[in-house]
Amino acid sequence: MTTSSPLTVLVAGATGSVGRLVVAESIAHGHTTRALVRDAAKARRVLPAEAELVVADVTDPGSLKAAVTDADAVVLTLGSDGGAHSSPENVDYGGVRNILSALADRAPRIVLMTAIGITSRSTGYGHLLDWKRRSERLVRASGLPYTIVRPGWFDMNGPDEHRPLFLQGDTRRTGTPADGVIARQQIAQVLVQALTAPQAVGRTFELVAENGEALEDLDALFAALTPDAPGALDGTGDEENMPLDREPAHVRADLDALRDRTGTP
């Protein structure tokens, strides 16, 4: 297992069902862990006492400066609830854009959680997956060191289904648990280990479980992944079915702004 000096880790989506496990996992790895929350009282009820709380809202860019200050790494586990304030565009996409913008000239490690089947272009999720895919493109365009993890269906594992399997190309796109399942705790483990694994940088992959025992050391799995092509907007092997010239104008503008700031092609 790759080890390094403790980091200051910011977790966005920290009170969500995966985010709170990421906070605990990060603390267990010895990292100073900062939880970005909207409601401090609620957060204190669900997060470990060791977590540092910073009150901010990912849909409000002006509130994020203190949250990102001095962060060595950022884990993004954002998820919308479908309300007007918390739509996929505002949270799953806009939240990622706003945090990347707030970083200014800082260059922390970025680990983004999205979802398996993200390239399906299915309308069954109300375009949720399209906005998550656009958030991936923002991260790749940022020029920052990143890992993008696309987990399968949460906590639907069988009793002997614990061995992590990393896939690429997003070929499982039925929109059902047949695409793959994974425990939330294992998602948190992968997200946190990706922060310090050199082999994880620049990789995008789907995360599911297969029959077998859990692994403590994921370095070999990270090392076996194919890196994303330099300058590419999509992950390695992804179907090219979201043409950039057909994207909303503001999405193209967001990508251009990130590329201009970082000099990314």
Results as ranks from 00 to 15, higher is better:
Thr3Tyr: 01
Ser5Val: 13
Val9Arg: 05
Leu10Asp: 06
Leu10Thr: 05
Ala12Trp: 01
Thr15Pro: 06
Val23Pro: 01
Ser26Tyr: 02
His31Ala: 08
Thr33Phe: 00
Arg34Gly: 04
Leu36Tyr: 02
Ala40Val: 04
Ala41Lys: 11
Ala56Trp: 03
Asp57Ile: 11
Thr59Cys: 09
Thr59Gln: 08
Thr59Asn: 10
Val68Trp: 01
Asp70Trp: 02
Asp70Thr: 11
Ala71Val: 13
Ala71Ser: 14
Ala71Asn: 08
Ala73Thr: 08
Leu76His: 05
Thr77Phe: 00
Gly94Ser: 12
Gly95Ile: 10
Leu100Asn: 09
Ser101Arg: 13
Pro108Phe: 04
Met113Trp: 04
Gly117Met: 10
Thr119Pro: 00
Thr119Asn: 11
Arg121Val: 10
Arg121Phe: 00
Leu128Met: 13
Trp131Glu: 15
Lys132Trp: 00
Arg134Asn: 08
Ser135Tyr: 05
Arg137Leu: 05
Val149Lys: 06
Phe154Asn: 09
Asp155Thr: 14
Phe166Pro: 14
Asp170Asn: 10
Thr171Tyr: 00
Arg172Ile: 09
Thr176Gln: 07
Pro177Leu: 05
Asp179Cys: 07
Gln185Leu: 04
Val190Pro: 03
Leu191Cys: 10
Ala194Trp: 04
Ala194Glu: 12
Thr196Trp: 00
Thr196His: 01
Thr196Gln: 11
Pro198Phe: 04
Gln199Ala: 15
Thr204Lys: 02
Glu210Ser: 10
Gly212Cys: 12
Leu215Gly: 13
Glu216Arg: 12
Glu216Asn: 14
Asp217Pro: 10
Asp219Phe: 00
Leu221Ala: 15
Leu221Val: 14
Ala224Phe: 00
Asp228Glu: 11
Pro230Leu: 06
Ala232Cys: 03
Gly237Asn: 03
Asn241Gln: 07
Asp245Ile: 12
Val251Gly: 01
Arg259Met: 14
Thr262Gln: 06
Thr264His: 07
Pro265Thr: 15
